[in-house]
Structure formats: structure tokens, C-alpha cells
Computed example of a mutant assay.
Amino acid sequence: MTNLYFIRHAHSTYTPDEKGRPLSERGLNDAKRVTEVLKREDIDHIISSPYQRAIQTVQGIANHTNKQMEVVDGFKERRLAKGPVEDFTYAITKVWEDEHFSWDGGESNMEAQERGVQATYDVLKKYDGKNVVIGTHGNIMVLIINYFDKKYDFAFWKELGMPDIYKLTFERKELISVIRIIC
């Protein structure tokens, strides 16, 4: 069995700099809780999206385990549009209503899901039988889980915490279970 611990990043203060946006003070404190929770799991590898807020959320467990973090572009957040959208709620609802729809310069659900699932399959192949932390983002995380189990959908995404931890257990490429780990 391979366990993937998908970690939705902790709270960050909004800036238009998607890649460099750091955690807020609250987010930094919550990231410490994530580290404490993950200390109880026997973590073999740490992976993160290239975005600063995801890296900061899992940096503590990388430090604790003395393991180098691997940055994987496939786990970055889905690009909703070329630039900031006027009405985020409308824009995100629209892409979830039609999995093939994308805003100008953005990724459809299908495109983002394909990217995230490919990254997940790469991790499953590379780290078969291991426990792997993946620092990522809410939308791409739910799109990945949704590929394996359709009950993880837009309504589920709206209920996610920040941070949030979901442990996905796989036997090769088959999803066996999804468990939320409270932090």
C-alpha cells in the first residue's frame, strides 16, 4: 500500500502573485499543527507544489524528518484565468459546472485534473509502498481525488479547511480509501 497525504495549504493573505504568495501569520501557526499531526505518521518523502504557501505548509515536516522536499509542478493550483477574475465565486462555479469549460488563459477542470492525476501516478510509481506528503491546493487536490471517486466534488471543495489533510491509500493505481486527518 502507498499512502499519499494530500495537504491543502494553510491560510495565506491574497496577493495577485500566485507563486510567491506566503502564508499569513495564522497560516504559519496552522502549518505548525500540520507538522505535529504528520509527526505521528511514518513519512518517507515530502513533495510540494512550487507555490510558496504550499511549500511553507509542509516545510516543517521536511525539517522534522530531515528529508529534502521535492517540488512537483503538477501539484500547483489550477489556473482559473489569465489574470484575476471579477467574481471568483461565479468563475469557480462555472468551471465546476462544465468540466470542459475554461476562462481565457485558464485550465478547465479536465485539463487541471489530467495534470494532477499524471503527477499522482508518477508519485505512486516512484514511491510504491511509501508514505508521501504532498503539499498542494484545494482545487487541484479535489480534482485529483474526484478522478478516483466522484463523490469528491465541488460541494466537497467548498467544505475544505485551510489547512486540511486527506490520506489516500492506494494499492498500485487503485484507490482503496480516503481518510480526513484532523489537524
Rank of each mutant, 00 (worst) to 15 (best):
I140Y: 06
D30S: 09
K67P: 04
M1D: 00
E111I: 08
L124R: 14
L28W: 05
E18H: 06
E97A: 10
N66R: 12
N131M: 11
D122W: 14
T2K: 06
Y166R: 14
T120H: 05
M162I: 10
I165P: 08
A119C: 10
D164E: 10
E159C: 11
G74S: 08
E171C: 11
I55G: 00
A112K: 10
E159M: 15
V58W: 00
D128R: 15
P16F: 01
D149K: 02
I181K: 06
I55T: 01
I92Y: 07
S49P: 07
R21S: 05
P84I: 00
A155D: 07
K150Q: 13
T35H: 03
D44L: 07
P16E: 09
C183H: 12
T89Q: 04
T136L: 11
P22D: 01
V72R: 09
E99A: 07
D164T: 08
T35P: 07
N3E: 07
P84D: 02
Q68S: 06
D149I: 05
S108R: 12
E41L: 10
S108I: 11
I55S: 00
D42S: 15
W157M: 04
P163I: 10
H100Y: 02
I46D: 04
T169V: 13
I43Y: 00
H9M: 04
D153R: 15
R26S: 08
L28A: 07
R26E: 13
N131R: 13
A31W: 03
R40S: 15
I7Q: 03
E36R: 15
N109W: 09
R172I: 09
G129H: 12
S102K: 15
E77G: 01
H100D: 05
S12E: 02
N146T: 05
P22T: 01
I43F: 03
V178H: 08
I145Y: 05
Y152K: 06
L38W: 04
I140S: 09
G83N: 04
E18C: 03
D98M: 12
Y5D: 02
D44G: 12
V34M: 08
F170A: 11
D122F: 13
R180V: 03
D122N: 15
F148K: 08
Q118I: 10
T89D: 04
I55L: 00
K39E: 06
G27S: 01
V178K: 08
G129R: 13
I92V: 13
